[in-house]
């Protein structure tokens, strides 16, 4: 299990940032979505042990954050939204230094610094001072410093911020590869739903510090009972027939529309169509887009 939060609450003075958050996230890539002030950053800061937990419990990779924060930081890599540069040093010095503080020996840290800088595409610029790096390069460098100590969990806060479309694509491919091929757990905080869709398996939606839903992107829409349908034949009597048998149908006279089918009812529907001499040309489940899921879950709160 990647993360287990139980009745987690946190307030800034009298302003609640997280309210009674209870969630279990399995291993893999998870997106953290929510409008501004939803509590995403607070949640990340609590995971990193930067904020004390006043109420509730949080375990990451089976370890209590409240008591084992230092050990956890050694196996977490964070790509924060803001700047985290150490001025006047080169990229390779910076990345190796990140490894040293995280517990690697100096030789190991330097070896891995070269490796991860190549991996994130900064191999050719690794001896340049990082003060002169562009925004996109700095984003890659932030990923390199988060990867150097080979963390089990990567937390990324707006990792594609300020990147051009090509660089963004490359970054997302890389994150996907880290999750799929290298077994890293990812927690991706972003406002860009497309980034989440491309990298994550599931999405945790927060709003006003509360969990609004945990959506499995791969399974999303599979449980829905709404299907798009195209039929040919005697449509009006068939609609009457279906309605008399308890089906909910919204189909026009041309045979185009939607039909609600509970699980296992599709076979029954097709048998009815055959018995009424109606051809089913198309029957596909209607998937709710991630945008629609997000809007629905967040509007539930308001």
């Amino acid at each position: 299990m990647l993360l287990e939060a139980h009745s987690l609450s946190f307030s800034y003075g009298n302003t609640p940032a997280l309210s009674d958050l209870t969630v279990s996230l399995p291993n893999g890539a998870t997106g953290l979505l929510g409008p501004n002030g939803a509590g995403k950053t607070t949640f990340v800061r609590i995971i990193m042990g930067l904020l004390r937990i006043p109420k509730g419990k949080l375990r990451v990779h089976g370890r209590e954050v409240a008591t084992e924060s230092k050990a956890l930081k050694a196996v977490i890599g964070l790509v924060p939204e803001g700047e985290i540069l150490v001025p006047d040093i080169t990229a390779v010095q910076y990345t190796a230094y990140a490894g040293r503080i995280s517990g690697l020996s100096s030789t190991e840290a330097m070896d891995r610094a070269h490796m991860v800088l190549h991996y994130v595409g900064l191999g050719g610029d690794r001896y340049r001072k990082i003060d002169g790096y562009s925004k996109g390069m700095r984003q890659r460098l932030k990923l390199a410093q988060a990867l150097v100590h080979d963390p089990k969990l990567l937390i990324l806060d707006e990792p594609t911020d300020g990147m051009d479309p090509k660089a963004r694509d490359e970054m997302l491919d890389l994150l996907k590869e880290l999750g799929n091929d290298h077994g890293k757990d990812l927690l991706l905080c972003t406002h860009l739903l497309d980034d989440v869709r491309r990298v994550c398996r599931r999405v945790l939606v927060l709003s006003q510090g509360r969990k609004m839903g945990l959506v499995d992107i791969e399974m999303q829409g599979k449980d829905t009972d709404l299907y798009a349908v195209t039929m040919r034949g005697p449509i009006p009597p068939f609609i009457d027939f279906l309605e008399s048998h308890g089906f909910k149908v919204d189909v026009d006279t041309d045979g185009e529309g939607q039909i609600a089918l509970s699980r296992g009812a599709a076979d029954q529907f097709i048998q009815h169509a055959v018995s009424q001499s109606v051809q089913i040309r198309r029957l596909v489940p209607l998937r709710e887009s991630l945008e629609e899921v997000f809007t629905r879950l967040v509007s539930k709160d308001t």
Binding site: L50, V86, S102
Partner: peptide, 9 residues
């Protein structure tokens, strides 16, 4: 730079 250090052990 401060943030860089604090997010580590």
């Amino acid at each position: 730079a401060t943030h860089f250090h604090i997010i580590r052990p």
